[in-house]
Amino acid sequence: MKVREPRTGTRRPGATGLLVLIPLAFIVLISAIDIASPPYVHLGPLLVVAPAITASFAGSRLTALIGSAAVAAQVLIGVFHGGLGTTNHEAQVAALMVVSAVIVFYCRVRERHGRELTHVRSVSDAVQEVLLRPIPEQLGPLLVAARYLAAEDEAQVGGDLYAATRVAHGTRLIIGDVRGKGLAAIGDSAHLLGAFRELAHHYRDLPALASALEQSFCRHLAEEVLADAGHGEHGERFATALLIDIPDASPVVRTTTCGHPAPLLLHDGRVHSLHTREPAPPLGMCELPDIRYPVETFAFEPGDTILLYTDGVTEARNRSRAFYPLADRLTAWTSAEPAGLLQHLQRDLLDHVGGRLRDDAALIALKRS
């Protein structure tokens, strides 16, 4: 899961205390040079640098204090250069006061926006916790790690989804990708995740589970169409999905693919694609009659690792427009534990794209212990 450190828009108190010495030094230096200079030399206007610098790292209160110190220094310079009664010094003091007030106002606006952004991030974190619940590091005999890589800086969730749940005979997982972006994609993801968490316990085999998810998702889309009536055309919406069933007692993995990329198996230092011969169409193809959901079984022995992913990984391009070679890169980390594997993979993927993904990506690594 994507983890972000909190940011408040200001520096730590210790760092701020050191940085405040810079504008204070400017005030002392400019004042000393101006007082020592001939009367026709006026360096006082440069004192505006002090509050301007302070605004780059401090809040409105400290900026106001530095601005007041700069105005006091300007008054002191006027006393030594012919008195404050001269028009030139009065204009300089007034101008410095106005500019300092504008800088303080800017700081207040920035602080308000910072608080609003912090609130938005906290809401985003809460939404992420509800939709993409953290997957335990161990599920039965499986060691598990998951990552969500958002394309947008301030986004925590999007159209990619994953979930895992323990059932009577083992562990079941879903990983998918909803078509589209924005609130509609988040709503579709939320519905699929909720439906999977409930239906996974009521169906013995994956085809029946996939069919139940299709019916549930189609009802959801029909309700969305009714809700959007009169608000414009309802765009095409569907979701690719991969359903995984891993029994505790058997060294196998069963998969049902609904238009989703095939998982990769890391076995004996090699990477194998678990292709499905007859993948089903994506979920949400509500007008297709008699959809078949074939299930395939693959060996999944102790020490093996399976990687589940969305197309945000394999379709990530570098500056030369080359796709990320996921299977080739995985050969370097076949012996890594799930958490370490995803850490290597995330770093390498971001290096490939130059530090920023163009589409969300989700990753799950499963190792049978």
Rank of each mutant, 00 (worst) to 15 (best):
S273W: 05
G354T: 07
R237N: 10
H272N: 08
V313H: 03
K2D: 01
L288A: 08
I186H: 01
A164T: 11
T331P: 05
D205E: 09
G232Y: 07
S216Q: 13
I291E: 05
L139Q: 07
R358P: 15
A25C: 06
L18C: 06
R112F: 15
P325R: 07
T8L: 04
A327F: 13
V99Y: 10
Q92F: 08
A229W: 01
M285T: 13
P263R: 04
T171I: 06
Y324G: 01
F298C: 03
E236P: 11
L363M: 13
Q138H: 10
R317L: 14
V75L: 08
A327W: 12
G83K: 03
A91D: 00
E296C: 02
A362W: 02
V123T: 14
F26L: 08
A55M: 13
H234E: 11
A73C: 06
T171L: 00
A168D: 13
R166V: 15
T87M: 00
S320C: 12
E214Y: 12
L307G: 03
A212Y: 08
L65F: 14
L206Y: 10
R133Y: 03
E5R: 12
L117Y: 13
H220W: 08
Q92P: 00
S60H: 15
S56C: 13
P136F: 01
D351M: 11
V252R: 12
G176C: 02
P136T: 04
C107V: 04
D304T: 09
A69D: 04
I175H: 02
L29E: 01
G312V: 08
T331F: 02
A151M: 03
G44Y: 09
S124P: 00
